[in-house]
């Protein structure tokens, strides 16, 4: 069997075999060249991250220096275009982003985790395949499309359900975000649950535990680091989403409240960028907001990496 497979390969490769003698020098040069090229491309990813970090820090610092770090972070009022007394406090944005993300995680994680558990343990093969396709599709829908649906279906629904003047609220944004983070939570959590050794579950069943008890008291704890990864991933997604929530959150710089129009860190950047004059303090302050958002995301990334590393080490021992 092996011979049959390998023989045609030998034949195929023979003509393109580089001649060994004579051109060894040229071949060496080519090898070196390609090695250098591949290395350069690999280094590019590092260069990009450095580039983005340095750029965000350099452009974000001037406004923070001018406004004062504490005033900037803890100021409750954002009125950059005020004639006499412009205010640059981004506490409303920070809190909105934190609350919005927390809300999205509070809804998205349970639904996502249960769906993942269903896919991994309970679902008949055909059903699981259908749901997996659905989840992949949910992940692929552009965020503006989520925004459009939120704007035309969810926002009016929130308005009538709670008798508000406008349905464009933090609540609507939370719901949209929780749907948007669902796919990544499901797929990561399912992978983690699938990776639980069969022996754990069999041992538990043999001891007389029911299937559900086994899934939730044996499999779930065994997959906890994977599920935690899914949660952190969801947090990162929710924190960084801009366009969809721009369309449903009302976009007013209020302190967060479930039934208030609010502005997130991301939407604060996106919404004023089009008209803030280049070089003005308002525009520089937008760069500073970006820097704050970037630091949040980096923090989440570090946590995520910690989880991934722990999982790797756990797998090795």
């Amino acid at each position: 069997m092996n011979e049959i497979v390998s023989q045609p390969q030998v034949k195929k490769r023979a003509p393109s075999q580089p001649p060994a003698a004579g051109r060894r020098g040229a071949r060496e040069v080519l090898e070196r060249l390609m090695h250098g090229l591949f290395f350069a491309c690999g280094a590019l990813a590092v260069a990009f991250v450095l580039f983005i970090s340095v750029y965000l820090i350099l452009s974000g610092l001037p406004a923070i220096r001018e406004i004062g770090l504490w005033d900037f972070l803890s100021g409750r009022e954002w009125a950059p275009t005020h004639q006499t007394e412009p205010r640059f406090g981004i506490l409303p944005f920070i809190l909105t982003s934190v609350y919005g993300t927390a809300g999205a995680v509070a809804i998205g994680v349970p639904v996502g985790f249960f769906t993942a558990m269903f896919l991994s343990k309970l679902a008949p093969k055909g059903v699981a395949e259908v749901i997996r396709t659905a989840v992949d599709l949910l992940a692929g829908i552009p965020s503006v499309v989520y925004g459009l649906i939120g704007m035309t279906v969810l926002v009016p629904a929130v308005r009538t359900a709670f008798g508000l003047a406008s349905g464009a609220t933090l609540l609507a944004a939370v719901v949209v975000l929780s749907v948007m983070i669902l796919p990544s939570i499901i797929s990561v959590a399912e992978t983690a649950l699938n990776a639980v050794p069969k022996e754990y579950e069999e041992a538990s069943l043999a001891l007389g535990a029911t299937r559900t008890e086994t899934w939730f008291r044996v499999s779930a704890p065994a997959a906890s680091s994977g599920v935690a990864t899914a949660v952190v991933l969801g947090i990162g997604r929710a924190m960084g989403e801009a366009m969809a929530i721009m369309m449903v959150a009302g976009n007013v710089a209020n302190m967060p409240g479930l039934f208030r129009s609010v502005r997130f860190l991301t939407t604060a950047i996106a919404s004023e960028m089009s008209y803030a004059a280049v070089g003005s303090l308002q525009r520089n302050a937008l760069y500073s907001i970006a820097l704050v958002l970037f630091l949040f995301i980096m923090l989440i990334n570090v946590i995520l990496n910690g989880f991934l590393k722990k999982k790797k080490e756990g797998g090795r021992t």
């Binding site: 590092v46 990162g236 950047i269 970006a290």
Partner: peptide, 17 residues
């Protein structure tokens, strides 16, 4: 680590830079 980090950066920040 760099590619992981790039994956996590929100697209609005790419847009800004």
């Amino acid at each position: 680590f760099a590619t992981e980090t790039l994956t996590g950066i929100p697209s609005i920040l790419f847009g800004l830079v």
